[in-house]
Amino acid sequence: MLVHTARFGAIEVPEENVIDFPWGLPGFPGQRRFVPIQHPGNGAIAFLQSLEMPELAFIVADPFQLVAGLEVEIPEADLEALEITSPAEAAVYAILTVKRGGAEITANLAAPLVVNTSKRKARQVILGDPDGGRLRYPLLAKGRAAEGKRGDAGACLDQKSGTEPDDRR
């Protein structure tokens, strides 16, 4: 199928690559259909291109490649909603935010995208309180205080989530 994108022009994408977000995404409730476009130079990075809005594309990355030792626990309710029954069916992506014209890149580890890879169904899963640097985990910060910021966020990640989990039965 032909996909119109603002960034790459019109590109041909296999229909089966389309990922459905039945519940949209916070901030983009009407955007349901996206297709990942792998970055040719970097296997860890992809553009998640909206099929409905040519100008809407997120940069996503495999969070486990970005952060060594990262653990992500997907709530039971989200797994059920996505009909994920085994870890082999699940893929996790973090949305990257590019700020200051590319001088700063952060990864959203607080609300990763979880994909059922066999059913091509996905949802942005909010993992409790987005505190401790997980919402804007710094990957790249040119200039001052970059190192300090990175260290802090790492420490916060190590202590796992200090938040009280909302139980859902």
Partner: peptide, 24 residues
């Protein structure tokens, strides 16, 4: 999360993604 998504969707015009990936 909504605000972060909004911001993530704004890619600077003329952003050289290759350059960023190189830096990463």
């Amino acid at each position: 999360i909504r605000q972060e998504n909004r911001q993530a969707a704004i890619l600077p015009a003329g952003l050289d993604v290759n350059e960023i990936l190189g830096l990463m």
